[in-house]
């Protein structure tokens, strides 16, 4: 028997248009990136990638990402725990506030940080007295990257922890477990897939963030240039192959992230079964 909405013609049209759109908007650009990067051969690609400034940009990007992930991880778990396990006035408001980094344009976020922590800003001015500079240096880049990525882990955890409820934890407490033991042996195993998934998303965003970082970094070549900023500079300098070599690196990181995500989902689904 045929189900509603399963007319062969409708199905064929939908499948074809989906495949066509995916190829045009997703696959083709990806192929183009690698084609451009390797346009003048592997050697040129390699020379571009191993260029001093590119290596520094890669280094800074990885450094920022490695610092961002643990901060977002701890923040996300703590926030999700707070919101799903306790009831207090302002709980709903807090849940809405978590989404601010998603709702606000990253450029705006960068500007606000500049306003607050820049040398002429309220807090930056005071810090300047102690000779501490946040903006146009890596701490500023780290701050805005954390701002932009902090909702990912919490967003993944909150619906899951809400659905699971606190029954497992209650059971563990009646059996005498407390604090860290409770978290490590009961809560963490229950949320580990969502947690890893949140980390992967955080990673992807931290590596690729452009808007907020471009405002606060100052884009000093070899010093405060992250990979996306470096890429843009190369492109402005008409170094197309150089720009696309960096782009290929970013695309590669993205592909690896997607692969990690797919394999996680697959493993989680298998564990559920």
């Amino acid at each position: 028997m045929q189900r509603i909405g399963d007319a062969p013609r409708v199905r064929r049209i939908l499948v074809i248009s989906a495949v066509l759109l995916a190829a045009l908007f997703l696959l083709l650009p990806l192929v183009a990136i690698f084609a451009q990067a390797f346009a003048q051969g592997v050697e040129v690609f390699w020379r571009n990638v191993s260029n001093h400034y590119t290596v520094r940009a890669i280094g800074l990007t990885l450094f920022i990402t490695v610092l961002t992930i643990p901060v977002c991880l701890v923040f996300g778990v703590a926030l999700a725990w707070l919101v799903t396990r306790f009831s207090f006035p302002g709980r709903r408001l807090l849940q809405t506030l978590i989404d601010i980094p998603f709702a606000v344009s990253p450029v705006v976020a960068g500007l606000v940080y500049l306003l607050l922590y820049g040398r002429n800003g309220w807090i930056g001015n005071w810090l300047d007295g102690y000779d501490i500079q946040l903006m146009f240096a890596w701490p500023g880049i780290l701050m805005v990257t954390i701002f932009v990525t902090c909702p990912f882990v919490a967003r993944e955890l909150i619906p899951l922890m809400q659905a699971q409820g606190s029954r497992d934890e209650e059971a563990a407490v009646t059996l005498g477990a407390s604090g860290w033991t409770l978290f490590r042996r009961v809560t963490l195993p229950n949320i580990r897939w969502a947690l890893l998934y949140g980390v992967i998303l955080t990673n992807a965003r931290a590596v690729g963030e452009f808007g907020a970082v471009s405002v606060v970094s100052g884009a000093i070549r070899g010093q405060t240039n992250t990979l996306p900023l470096h890429l843009e500079q190369l492109y402005q300098d008409y170094n197309t192959v150089g720009a696309f070599s960096s782009a290929a690196l970013l695309a590669l990181i993205a592909l690896l992230t997607l692969a990690a995500k797919a394999s996680l989902e697959w493993r989680a689904a298998r564990q559920e079964a």
Partner: peptide
């Protein structure tokens, strides 16, 4: 305490579930 929907730790074996109170 026995819960209506058992509240067993799903990532642990039956043995580990029963042993939980003793191991913590």
């Amino acid at each position: 305490f026995v819960f209506q929907h058992y509240a067993l730790f799903r990532h642990m074996t039956v043995f580990d579930n029963v042993a939980f109170g003793l191991t913590v």
